[in-house]
Design a protein around this nucleic acid. Structure first.
Lengths: 342, 342
DNA sequence: GTTAGCACTCGGTCAAACAGAGTGCTAACA
DNA sequence: TGTTAGCACTCTGTTTGACCGAGTGCTAAC
């Protein structure tokens, strides 16, 4: 549908626009890229491309800029995928080695690095449930009335919480309940616990009916602890460097949105298929980011969602490069998470 | 040194400038505040005030704006301290009740509320060490080679970490070390542990010399866990609404700075005396915030720093109101922290 | 000591002029 | 028939100058 020459021209225009953020005219193309044709010819082709919807003109006698359709075609068919440079690899390696000690720091630093290397906002969404399996719970003493509930998973200690010891029970009672629950739940994923096992446990584990309600409550607390997902973010100020966000009002809108953790999670959840997903401008359902593009990758292990990593930037984004980096980071992340697993 | 009338005028100018952010002229003052004198008289007084350094003129034939010295005098002698409104109190109460479950959430939400109510950036610095005492450490099983080290304080579970079990030891050995250490350290503050007890423990606790190095390392790890302070921040985007931060470059500089946790901690540490401290513009040592003012309060319990709460905004800040809110929040915070203490 | 009056200064705004970049069209060329 | 050179035209951003309004400082009168 687009002949070789039109593709070349379209690619040249988008490449140039991505790096300059300026509308680009036929003359400039002829000068910068030696396609072996004159500006006049390029003009004709550009007129065609505009007619077909790949380009737009901000106004008569301005150069052209890519349209959403243009970007889409660019991402699907045209763009090159530059390698991650050794320099960048070195930065990434080094960063992880010096900074990371606990598992949540892995994600935090991933977000940081990602925004640093891509020069855009990065998001790392980690469903607490999926990337690990239940090992055991334990009740640690706190004071007469309270205990600390600790949930240990194969990824380390996940969450903890001071809970009130129910009326009429002792710490030892609680611990006994814990032992029973552990036998039952050990090695299961949290999804499994939530969906199928819960009701079963209710009945079989508790010989003592007096403890029934208590155990139920505790289970609820465990699952409440578990359901949260954590969102790590990096590089929000990168937005301010982009020429398309020189308008303070616009920036404020976006930054305010980025503080709404819930909303961001929802947006990330919209595209949870496998592999790399590029959402361009108005393709985004949420209007607040309709002049942004998002590249996200959701990774699974054995069908379980392990995490979503995303980069958010202006539609004029270095798609190819960003995707390369994202893929590299994914592999890297995998290796690092290995260390924290069984 | 300033007669009553000059004070009235200065106060009027600063009050007005704080709310409008516009240079203000003699005519406007005469109109808005009925001081019973004519613009011409006010002009004369303003000329005096400028001569004495309390006011500045952006250019000839503009109105006056407060100088740093003017702000300083305003804060020390002139400003009123409006009460926190019942409406605001309701917001605050409600917020805490619905949101807060764990102790770190108390601080997080404090930062959020503070920025919401003052419409400025808020900072809450919590030295992990000081606001709690050591209760015990415990080693939980993880796998063959590793254990989870848990540090419990009177404020709840403080920190945890997956550690390698040293060569030649078993989990039980570790736990035995833990028991010994707990006997020794129970009830002490972390400062005490660090300064005096550490060396003593080395010698007395360990009957088995083979465990010496190991125990030492573990103690180091505990103290490493403990030394960090946490900084909670809220309302960074509020800056963008201020007329003095319409310049993207300026905003970016500030926001970038706000991401440097270390730097912020240092700045907050500079003024750790008791009570409320107002630092205006160039009084700030760090140049990045020299057109900002900071109001901070460091609270102690029995000589120990419990936390620092601060608000950062443009020099044109509602000092009186902010201070009132800060004080109110302090009292409130005290009550809430009670619940989480012994 | 206070006030009215007046000349003066300076920034912000508006409109007109202008330069620059780019287009579309036409006609010539290979 | 596809490509190119030439040219008139269009549109934006910037500069220039005029003008208005807000505010001042000074002087003289009250």
């Amino acid at each position: 549908m687009l002949d070789e020459r039109k593709r070349k021209i379209l690619q040249a225009i988008i490449d140039d626009y991505i790096s300059t953020a300026e509308p680009i005219g036929s003359r400039t193309i002829a000068r910068k890229f030696n396609l072996g044709i004159s500006p006049a010819t390029i003009r004709n082709e550009m007129a065609d491309l505009e007619l077909q919807g790949y380009l737009e003109q901000p106004h008569t006698s301005a150069g052209r800029v890519p349209s959403p359709k243009g970007y889409r075609f660019y991402v699907d068919c045209l763009m090159e995928r530059p390698e991650v440079t050794p320099r960048e690899i070195a930065i990434i390696d080094n960063w992880y080695q010096t900074k990371v000690r606990r598992i949540d720091e892995v994600f935090q630093e991933t977000a940081r690095i990602l925004s640093k290397v891509t020069r855009n906002v990065s998001l790392v969404l980690v469903p607490q449930a999926a990337h690990c399996r239940f090992k055991y719970i334990q009740f640690l003493p706190f004071d007469e009335r309270r205990a600390i509930l600790v949930v240990v998973t194969d990824a380390g200690l996940m969450e903890n919480k001071v809970i009130d010891i129910p009326q009429g029970l002792s710490l030892e009672d609680l611990q006994q309940i814990g032992v029973n629950m552990n036998q039952r739940l050990n090695g299961l994923s949290f999804d499994q616990i939530k969906t199928s096992v819960l009701s079963e446990v209710k009945q079989s584990v508790l010989e003592d009916p007096a403890l029934f309600e208590t155990a139920l409550n505790i289970l609820r607390q465990v699952l409440a602890v578990e359901k949260g997902e954590k969102l790590y973010m990096g590089g929000t100020t990168q937005l301010l460097s982009q020429p398309e966000f020189q308008d303070i009002g616009k920036v404020k809108g976006l930054l305010d949105m980025l503080e709404e953790e819930r909303l961001l999670c929802d947006i990330l959840h919209m595209h949870e298929s496998d592999g790399m997903i590029v959402t361009i401008g108005q393709e985004n359902k949420y209007s607040g980011i309709q002049d942004c593009s998002m590249i996200q990758a959701t990774y699974r292990v054995e069908g379980q969602v392990v995490g979503t990593v995303a980069v958010l930037g202006p539609t004029r984004m270095e798609y190819g490069k960003t995707i390369s980096v994202l893929e590299f980071m994914h592999r890297h992340l995998g290796e690092i998470l290995q260390k924290y697993k069984i």
